[in-house]
Design a protein around this nucleic acid. Sequence first.
DNA 1: CTATTTGCCTATAACCTGTAGGAAGATGCA
DNA 2: TGCATCTTCCTACAGGTTATAGGCAAATAG
Lengths: 192, 192
Amino acid sequence: MARVGLTPERLARAGAELADEVGFDQVTVSALARRFDVKAASLYAHVRSSQDLRTRIALLALEELADRAADALAGRAGKDALTALANVYRDYAREHPGRYAAAQLRLDPETAAASAGVRHTQMTRALLRGYDLTEPDQTHAVRLLGSVFHGYVSLELGGGFSHSAPDSQQTWTRVLDALDALLRNWPEPTGS
Amino acid sequence: MARVGLTPERLARAGAELADEVGFDQVTVSALARRFDVKAASLYAHVRSSQDLRTRIALLALEELADRAADALAGRAGKDALTALANVYRDYAREHPGRYAAAQLRLDPETAAASAGVRHTQMTRALLRGYDLTEPDQTHAVRLLGSVFHGYVSLELGGGFSHSAPDSQQTWTRVLDALDALLRNWPEPTGS
DNA sequence: CTATTTGCCTATAACCTGTAGGAAGATGCA
DNA sequence: TGCATCTTCCTACAGGTTATAGGCAAATAG
Protein backbone atom coordinates (compact mmCIF):
# COMPACT_ATOMS: atom_id res chain seq x y z
CA MET A 1 0.00 0.00 0.00
CA ALA A 2 2.54 2.53 -1.19
CA ARG A 3 1.85 6.06 -0.11
CA VAL A 4 1.82 8.63 -2.83
CA GLY A 5 2.25 11.63 -0.56
CA LEU A 6 -0.86 13.63 -1.29
CA THR A 7 -1.36 17.04 0.24
CA PRO A 8 -3.92 19.75 -0.46
CA GLU A 9 -1.15 21.81 -2.10
CA ARG A 10 0.00 19.03 -4.40
CA LEU A 11 -3.61 18.35 -5.35
CA ALA A 12 -4.15 21.99 -6.18
CA ARG A 13 -1.01 22.12 -8.30
CA ALA A 14 -1.86 18.92 -10.11
CA GLY A 15 -5.42 20.13 -10.49
CA ALA A 16 -4.13 23.31 -12.10
CA GLU A 17 -2.09 21.31 -14.59
CA LEU A 18 -5.07 19.15 -15.32
CA ALA A 19 -7.19 22.25 -15.85
CA ASP A 20 -4.72 23.57 -18.40
CA GLU A 21 -4.81 20.27 -20.25
CA VAL A 22 -8.50 19.45 -20.28
CA GLY A 23 -10.26 22.64 -19.18
CA PHE A 24 -11.17 23.85 -15.74
CA ASP A 25 -14.69 22.46 -15.82
CA GLN A 26 -13.35 19.01 -16.66
CA VAL A 27 -11.37 18.94 -13.43
CA THR A 28 -12.99 16.28 -11.29
CA VAL A 29 -11.94 14.50 -8.15
CA SER A 30 -11.98 11.27 -10.13
CA ALA A 31 -9.75 12.55 -12.91
CA LEU A 32 -7.29 13.94 -10.41
CA ALA A 33 -7.25 10.63 -8.53
CA ARG A 34 -6.47 8.78 -11.77
CA ARG A 35 -3.57 11.13 -12.32
CA PHE A 36 -2.10 10.06 -8.98
CA ASP A 37 -3.07 6.43 -9.60
CA VAL A 38 -5.17 6.46 -6.50
CA LYS A 39 -8.83 5.97 -5.72
CA ALA A 40 -11.09 9.01 -5.75
CA ALA A 41 -12.14 8.43 -2.16
CA SER A 42 -8.55 8.95 -1.04
CA LEU A 43 -8.58 12.56 -2.14
CA TYR A 44 -11.36 13.38 0.27
CA ALA A 45 -8.85 13.09 3.08
CA HIS A 46 -7.18 16.22 1.69
CA VAL A 47 -9.97 18.24 0.11
CA ARG A 48 -13.48 18.52 1.46
CA SER A 49 -15.26 18.40 -1.86
CA SER A 50 -14.99 18.93 -5.54
CA GLN A 51 -15.88 22.57 -4.92
CA ASP A 52 -13.10 22.84 -2.34
CA LEU A 53 -10.62 21.50 -4.89
CA ARG A 54 -11.74 24.04 -7.48
CA THR A 55 -11.45 26.85 -4.97
CA ARG A 56 -7.88 25.83 -4.14
CA ILE A 57 -6.99 25.85 -7.82
CA ALA A 58 -8.58 29.27 -8.18
CA LEU A 59 -6.60 30.65 -5.26
CA LEU A 60 -3.41 29.17 -6.68
CA ALA A 61 -4.06 30.83 -10.03
CA LEU A 62 -4.81 34.18 -8.42
CA GLU A 63 -1.52 33.97 -6.51
CA GLU A 64 0.52 33.06 -9.55
CA LEU A 65 -1.08 35.83 -11.53
CA ALA A 66 -0.46 38.38 -8.79
CA ASP A 67 3.17 37.29 -8.50
CA ARG A 68 3.69 37.70 -12.21
CA ALA A 69 2.01 41.07 -12.14
CA ALA A 70 4.18 42.28 -9.27
CA ASP A 71 7.27 41.16 -11.18
CA ALA A 72 6.16 42.87 -14.35
CA LEU A 73 5.35 46.14 -12.63
CA ALA A 74 8.65 46.43 -10.77
CA GLY A 75 10.53 49.44 -12.02
CA ARG A 76 7.94 50.46 -14.59
CA ALA A 77 5.56 53.38 -14.78
CA GLY A 78 3.11 54.98 -17.16
CA LYS A 79 2.34 53.25 -20.40
CA ASP A 80 5.22 50.90 -19.88
CA ALA A 81 3.59 49.62 -16.71
CA LEU A 82 0.16 49.49 -18.34
CA THR A 83 1.45 47.34 -21.16
CA ALA A 84 3.39 45.08 -18.83
CA LEU A 85 0.42 44.45 -16.58
CA ALA A 86 -1.93 43.87 -19.48
CA ASN A 87 0.44 41.40 -21.04
CA VAL A 88 0.74 39.49 -17.80
CA TYR A 89 -2.97 38.72 -17.90
CA ARG A 90 -3.04 37.94 -21.57
CA ASP A 91 0.06 35.78 -21.56
CA TYR A 92 -1.03 33.90 -18.47
CA ALA A 93 -4.39 33.16 -20.03
CA ARG A 94 -2.76 31.87 -23.18
CA GLU A 95 -0.17 29.76 -21.38
CA HIS A 96 -2.56 28.51 -18.74
CA PRO A 97 -6.14 28.66 -19.99
CA GLY A 98 -7.38 26.28 -17.32
CA ARG A 99 -5.78 28.25 -14.52
CA TYR A 100 -7.08 31.48 -15.99
CA ALA A 101 -10.58 30.06 -16.07
CA ALA A 102 -10.09 28.95 -12.48
CA ALA A 103 -9.14 32.49 -11.48
CA GLN A 104 -12.62 33.59 -12.61
CA LEU A 105 -14.34 31.21 -10.20
CA ARG A 106 -16.80 33.05 -8.07
CA LEU A 107 -15.54 33.00 -4.50
CA ASP A 108 -17.56 33.70 -1.43
CA PRO A 109 -16.81 37.15 0.00
CA GLU A 110 -14.56 36.05 2.87
CA THR A 111 -12.47 33.79 0.66
CA ALA A 112 -12.21 36.51 -1.95
CA ALA A 113 -11.15 39.07 0.63
CA ALA A 114 -8.38 36.75 1.84
CA SER A 115 -7.25 35.87 -1.67
CA ALA A 116 -4.61 37.37 -3.90
CA GLY A 117 -7.47 39.12 -5.68
CA VAL A 118 -6.94 42.17 -3.51
CA ARG A 119 -3.32 42.40 -4.66
CA HIS A 120 -4.57 42.71 -8.21
CA THR A 121 -6.64 45.73 -7.30
CA GLN A 122 -3.74 47.26 -5.39
CA MET A 123 -1.36 46.81 -8.28
CA THR A 124 -3.77 48.32 -10.76
CA ARG A 125 -4.15 51.25 -8.40
CA ALA A 126 -0.38 51.57 -8.17
CA LEU A 127 -0.15 51.59 -11.93
CA LEU A 128 -2.63 54.43 -12.08
CA ARG A 129 -0.38 56.61 -9.97
CA GLY A 130 1.49 57.19 -13.22
CA TYR A 131 -1.61 58.96 -14.49
CA ASP A 132 -3.30 61.92 -12.99
CA LEU A 133 -6.47 60.52 -11.50
CA THR A 134 -8.03 61.25 -8.14
CA GLU A 135 -10.85 59.46 -6.38
CA PRO A 136 -13.40 58.41 -7.36
CA ASP A 137 -12.08 58.39 -10.92
CA GLN A 138 -9.20 56.17 -9.90
CA THR A 139 -11.63 53.49 -8.81
CA HIS A 140 -13.59 53.88 -12.01
CA ALA A 141 -10.36 53.44 -13.95
CA VAL A 142 -9.35 50.37 -11.94
CA ARG A 143 -12.66 48.80 -12.82
CA LEU A 144 -12.38 49.81 -16.45
CA LEU A 145 -8.92 48.30 -16.78
CA GLY A 146 -10.04 45.12 -15.10
CA SER A 147 -12.98 44.94 -17.48
CA VAL A 148 -10.91 45.48 -20.59
CA PHE A 149 -8.20 43.03 -19.60
CA HIS A 150 -10.59 40.33 -18.56
CA GLY A 151 -13.02 40.95 -21.39
CA TYR A 152 -10.40 41.01 -24.09
CA VAL A 153 -8.59 37.96 -22.83
CA SER A 154 -11.70 35.92 -22.41
CA LEU A 155 -13.11 36.82 -25.82
CA GLU A 156 -9.77 36.10 -27.43
CA LEU A 157 -9.48 32.80 -25.61
CA GLY A 158 -12.98 31.92 -26.70
CA GLY A 159 -11.88 32.29 -30.28
CA GLY A 160 -13.82 35.47 -30.85
CA PHE A 161 -11.05 37.26 -32.68
CA SER A 162 -9.43 34.41 -34.49
CA HIS A 163 -11.50 34.22 -37.64
CA SER A 164 -11.25 37.76 -38.92
CA ALA A 165 -8.65 40.30 -39.89
CA PRO A 166 -6.72 42.10 -38.55
CA ASP A 167 -5.04 39.67 -36.22
CA SER A 168 -5.58 39.88 -32.52
CA GLN A 169 -2.09 41.11 -31.70
CA GLN A 170 -2.61 44.29 -33.68
CA THR A 171 -5.86 45.02 -31.95
CA TRP A 172 -4.25 44.36 -28.59
CA THR A 173 -1.51 46.88 -29.29
CA ARG A 174 -4.00 49.50 -30.39
CA VAL A 175 -6.27 48.83 -27.44
CA LEU A 176 -3.36 49.52 -25.10
CA ASP A 177 -2.59 52.70 -27.04
CA ALA A 178 -6.20 53.70 -26.63
CA LEU A 179 -6.30 52.96 -22.91
CA ASP A 180 -3.12 54.93 -22.34
CA ALA A 181 -4.54 57.88 -24.25
CA LEU A 182 -7.78 57.63 -22.31
CA LEU A 183 -6.04 57.57 -18.93
CA ARG A 184 -3.88 60.55 -19.86
CA ASN A 185 -6.96 62.41 -20.94
CA TRP A 186 -9.65 61.20 -18.60
CA PRO A 187 -12.91 63.03 -19.36
CA GLU A 188 -15.02 65.08 -16.97
CA PRO A 189 -18.46 63.69 -16.17
CA THR A 190 -20.98 64.71 -18.78
CA GLY A 191 -23.77 67.04 -17.79
CA SER A 192 -26.59 64.54 -18.15
CA MET B 1 -49.09 8.04 -20.40
CA ALA B 2 -49.96 11.68 -20.93
CA ARG B 3 -47.86 13.43 -23.53
CA VAL B 4 -46.23 16.56 -22.35
CA GLY B 5 -45.48 17.93 -25.80
CA LEU B 6 -41.74 18.30 -25.70
CA THR B 7 -39.88 19.92 -28.55
CA PRO B 8 -36.29 21.09 -28.90
CA GLU B 9 -37.52 24.69 -28.73
CA ARG B 10 -39.52 24.19 -25.56
CA LEU B 11 -36.60 22.42 -23.98
CA ALA B 12 -34.28 25.28 -24.87
CA ARG B 13 -36.70 27.84 -23.43
CA ALA B 14 -37.23 25.87 -20.26
CA GLY B 15 -33.50 25.27 -20.05
CA ALA B 16 -32.92 29.01 -20.27
CA GLU B 17 -35.34 29.59 -17.40
CA LEU B 18 -33.65 26.88 -15.41
CA ALA B 19 -30.27 28.46 -16.11
CA ASP B 20 -31.47 31.80 -14.77
CA GLU B 21 -32.71 30.12 -11.63
CA VAL B 22 -29.87 27.77 -10.77
CA GLY B 23 -26.98 28.82 -13.01
CA PHE B 24 -26.08 27.72 -16.49
CA ASP B 25 -23.63 25.05 -15.37
CA GLN B 26 -26.31 23.48 -13.21
CA VAL B 27 -28.50 22.90 -16.24
CA THR B 28 -28.65 19.15 -16.71
CA VAL B 29 -30.82 16.87 -18.75
CA SER B 30 -32.04 15.33 -15.51
CA ALA B 31 -33.02 18.62 -13.94
CA LEU B 32 -34.82 19.69 -17.07
CA ALA B 33 -36.66 16.36 -17.21
CA ARG B 34 -37.79 16.81 -13.61
CA ARG B 35 -39.15 20.22 -14.55
CA PHE B 36 -41.38 18.58 -17.15
CA ASP B 37 -42.15 15.67 -14.83
CA VAL B 38 -40.71 13.29 -17.33
CA LYS B 39 -37.83 10.80 -17.33
CA ALA B 40 -34.44 12.03 -18.44
CA ALA B 41 -34.24 9.45 -21.20
CA SER B 42 -37.29 11.01 -22.85
CA LEU B 43 -35.42 14.23 -23.55
CA TYR B 44 -32.91 12.42 -25.72
CA ALA B 45 -35.59 12.10 -28.38
CA HIS B 46 -35.41 15.88 -28.78
CA VAL B 47 -31.82 16.82 -27.99
CA ARG B 48 -28.82 14.74 -28.91
CA SER B 49 -26.86 15.32 -25.75
CA SER B 50 -26.38 17.52 -22.78
CA GLN B 51 -23.97 19.56 -24.88
CA ASP B 52 -26.59 19.93 -27.58
CA LEU B 53 -29.05 21.25 -25.02
CA ARG B 54 -26.54 23.80 -23.78
CA THR B 55 -25.80 24.92 -27.30
CA ARG B 56 -29.49 25.47 -27.99
CA ILE B 57 -29.78 27.59 -24.87
CA ALA B 58 -26.73 29.57 -25.93
CA LEU B 59 -28.19 30.23 -29.37
CA LEU B 60 -31.48 31.28 -27.82
CA ALA B 61 -29.70 33.74 -25.55
CA LEU B 62 -27.67 35.17 -28.41
CA GLU B 63 -30.86 35.70 -30.40
CA GLU B 64 -32.68 37.38 -27.55
CA LEU B 65 -29.73 39.61 -26.89
CA ALA B 66 -29.40 40.57 -30.54
CA ASP B 67 -33.10 41.35 -30.74
CA ARG B 68 -32.90 43.60 -27.72
CA ALA B 69 -29.85 45.30 -29.13
CA ALA B 70 -31.52 45.94 -32.46
CA ASP B 71 -34.49 47.44 -30.64
CA ALA B 72 -32.31 49.65 -28.52
CA LEU B 73 -30.27 50.94 -31.42
CA ALA B 74 -33.23 51.86 -33.59
CA GLY B 75 -33.25 55.60 -34.09
CA ARG B 76 -30.22 56.32 -31.95
CA ALA B 77 -26.74 57.46 -32.82
CA GLY B 78 -23.52 58.56 -31.17
CA LYS B 79 -23.29 58.37 -27.43
CA ASP B 80 -26.98 57.76 -27.18
CA ALA B 81 -26.57 54.58 -29.18
CA LEU B 82 -23.44 53.58 -27.27
CA THR B 83 -25.24 53.88 -23.96
CA ALA B 84 -28.27 52.04 -25.22
CA LEU B 85 -26.28 49.11 -26.54
CA ALA B 86 -24.13 48.88 -23.45
CA ASN B 87 -27.19 48.86 -21.23
CA VAL B 88 -28.76 46.09 -23.25
CA TYR B 89 -25.89 43.77 -22.37
CA ARG B 90 -25.74 44.83 -18.77
CA ASP B 91 -29.47 44.69 -18.17
CA TYR B 92 -29.80 41.35 -19.89
CA ALA B 93 -27.03 39.89 -17.77
CA ARG B 94 -28.66 41.14 -14.60
CA GLU B 95 -32.13 39.98 -15.54
CA HIS B 96 -30.98 36.69 -17.01
CA PRO B 97 -27.64 35.69 -15.55
CA GLY B 98 -28.01 32.08 -16.65
CA ARG B 99 -28.83 33.03 -20.21
CA TYR B 100 -25.99 35.53 -20.22
CA ALA B 101 -23.59 32.82 -19.10
CA ALA B 102 -25.01 30.59 -21.82
CA ALA B 103 -24.29 33.24 -24.42
CA GLN B 104 -20.60 32.92 -23.52
CA LEU B 105 -20.53 29.22 -24.33
CA ARG B 106 -17.80 28.46 -26.77
CA LEU B 107 -19.39 27.38 -30.04
CA ASP B 108 -17.67 25.55 -32.83
CA PRO B 109 -16.89 27.85 -35.77
CA GLU B 110 -19.75 26.78 -38.05
CA THR B 111 -22.35 27.07 -35.32
CA ALA B 112 -20.94 30.43 -34.29
CA ALA B 113 -21.01 31.69 -37.86
CA ALA B 114 -24.66 30.72 -38.20
CA SER B 115 -25.62 32.20 -34.83
CA ALA B 116 -26.89 35.61 -33.89
CA GLY B 117 -23.36 36.36 -32.77
CA VAL B 118 -22.62 37.93 -36.13
CA ARG B 119 -25.51 40.36 -35.67
CA HIS B 120 -23.83 41.60 -32.52
CA THR B 121 -20.71 42.47 -34.45
CA GLN B 122 -22.73 44.13 -37.19
CA MET B 123 -24.64 46.25 -34.73
CA THR B 124 -21.51 47.38 -32.96
CA ARG B 125 -20.09 48.32 -36.31
CA ALA B 126 -23.24 50.25 -37.12
CA LEU B 127 -22.97 52.09 -33.84
CA LEU B 128 -19.43 53.11 -34.70
CA ARG B 129 -20.63 54.86 -37.83
CA GLY B 130 -21.55 57.67 -35.46
CA TYR B 131 -17.85 58.10 -34.76
CA ASP B 132 -15.15 58.86 -37.21
CA LEU B 133 -13.24 55.61 -37.50
CA THR B 134 -11.95 53.87 -40.59
CA GLU B 135 -10.59 50.38 -40.98
CA PRO B 136 -8.74 48.81 -39.33
CA ASP B 137 -9.46 51.06 -36.35
CA GLN B 138 -13.14 50.30 -36.61
CA THR B 139 -12.44 46.63 -36.05
CA HIS B 140 -10.15 47.45 -33.15
CA ALA B 141 -12.94 49.54 -31.65
CA VAL B 142 -15.52 46.79 -32.14
CA ARG B 143 -13.28 44.44 -30.23
CA LEU B 144 -12.60 46.99 -27.53
CA LEU B 145 -16.28 47.66 -26.98
CA GLY B 146 -17.01 43.96 -26.86
CA SER B 147 -14.26 43.50 -24.32
CA VAL B 148 -15.42 46.32 -22.08
CA PHE B 149 -19.06 45.30 -22.17
CA HIS B 150 -18.38 41.66 -21.57
CA GLY B 151 -15.62 42.26 -19.06
CA TYR B 152 -17.55 44.79 -17.02
CA VAL B 153 -20.73 42.78 -16.98
CA SER B 154 -19.04 39.57 -16.02
CA LEU B 155 -16.96 41.13 -13.26
CA GLU B 156 -20.02 42.91 -11.94
CA LEU B 157 -22.06 39.73 -12.06
CA GLY B 158 -19.29 37.90 -10.26
CA GLY B 159 -19.64 40.34 -7.41
CA GLY B 160 -16.36 42.06 -8.12
CA PHE B 161 -17.69 45.58 -7.69
CA SER B 162 -20.25 45.02 -5.01
CA HIS B 163 -18.14 45.33 -1.87
CA SER B 164 -16.50 48.69 -2.37
CA ALA B 165 -17.44 52.28 -2.98
CA PRO B 166 -18.44 53.93 -5.25
CA ASP B 167 -21.36 51.87 -6.39
CA SER B 168 -21.23 50.09 -9.69
CA GLN B 169 -23.80 52.30 -11.40
CA GLN B 170 -21.59 55.34 -11.04
CA THR B 171 -18.62 53.54 -12.52
CA TRP B 172 -20.76 52.30 -15.36
CA THR B 173 -21.87 55.82 -16.23
CA ARG B 174 -18.31 57.10 -16.14
CA VAL B 175 -17.02 54.17 -18.17
CA LEU B 176 -19.51 55.01 -20.89
CA ASP B 177 -18.42 58.66 -20.74
CA ALA B 178 -14.84 57.50 -21.11
CA LEU B 179 -15.58 55.20 -24.03
CA ASP B 180 -17.49 57.94 -25.82
CA ALA B 181 -14.60 60.36 -25.32
CA LEU B 182 -12.16 57.74 -26.51
CA LEU B 183 -14.09 56.98 -29.67
CA ARG B 184 -14.45 60.67 -30.48
CA ASN B 185 -10.75 61.11 -29.98
CA TRP B 186 -9.26 57.82 -31.15
CA PRO B 187 -5.47 58.00 -30.92
CA GLU B 188 -2.95 57.46 -33.68
CA PRO B 189 -0.72 54.42 -33.34
CA THR B 190 2.28 55.15 -31.18
CA GLY B 191 5.70 55.12 -32.74
CA SER B 192 7.05 52.08 -30.89
C1' DC C 1 9.70 -1.34 19.67
C1' DT C 2 5.11 -0.69 20.70
C1' DA C 3 1.16 2.77 20.20
C1' DT C 4 -1.00 6.12 17.78
C1' DT C 5 -1.78 8.72 13.91
C1' DT C 6 -2.12 9.16 9.09
C1' DG C 7 -2.91 7.64 4.31
C1' DC C 8 -5.04 5.04 1.21
C1' DC C 9 -8.15 1.17 0.60
C1' DT C 10 -13.00 -1.24 -0.30
C1' DA C 11 -17.83 -0.77 -0.19
C1' DT C 12 -21.78 1.70 -0.87
C1' DA C 13 -25.39 5.17 -2.10
C1' DA C 14 -27.06 8.85 -4.94
C1' DC C 15 -27.09 11.34 -9.12
C1' DC C 16 -26.05 12.31 -14.14
C1' DT C 17 -25.33 10.92 -19.14
C1' DG C 18 -26.56 8.10 -22.76
C1' DT C 19 -28.42 3.74 -25.31
C1' DA C 20 -31.80 0.08 -26.33
C1' DG C 21 -36.06 -1.64 -26.75
C1' DG C 22 -41.13 -1.60 -25.45
C1' DA C 23 -45.92 0.21 -24.92
C1' DA C 24 -49.43 3.63 -25.29
C1' DG C 25 -51.20 7.76 -27.54
C1' DA C 26 -51.71 10.38 -31.95
C1' DT C 27 -52.28 10.40 -36.86
C1' DG C 28 -53.38 8.89 -41.63
C1' DC C 29 -55.90 6.33 -44.80
C1' DA C 30 -59.29 3.13 -46.39
C1' DT D 1 -65.04 3.24 -37.90
C1' DG D 2 -61.00 0.39 -37.96
C1' DC D 3 -56.33 -0.63 -38.85
C1' DA D 4 -51.43 0.52 -39.59
C1' DT D 5 -47.88 3.46 -38.56
C1' DC D 6 -45.36 6.86 -36.30
C1' DT D 7 -44.23 9.48 -32.37
C1' DT D 8 -43.67 10.05 -27.58
C1' DC D 9 -42.57 8.65 -23.43
C1' DC D 10 -41.55 4.60 -20.67
C1' DT D 11 -38.42 0.92 -18.18
C1' DA D 12 -34.02 -1.09 -17.86
C1' DC D 13 -29.34 -0.78 -17.85
C1' DA D 14 -24.29 0.55 -18.22
C1' DG D 15 -20.74 3.70 -17.04
C1' DG D 16 -18.98 7.81 -14.75
C1' DT D 17 -18.83 11.26 -10.74
C1' DT D 18 -19.51 12.93 -5.88
C1' DA D 19 -19.45 11.80 -1.29
C1' DT D 20 -19.51 9.02 3.19
C1' DA D 21 -18.20 5.15 6.33
C1' DG D 22 -15.25 2.03 8.09
C1' DG D 23 -10.87 -0.89 7.75
C1' DC D 24 -5.98 -2.08 7.34
C1' DA D 25 -1.28 -0.96 6.81
C1' DA D 26 2.56 2.34 6.72
C1' DA D 27 4.78 6.11 9.04
C1' DT D 28 6.01 8.27 13.23
C1' DA D 29 6.49 9.29 18.33
C1' DG D 30 7.50 8.06 22.81
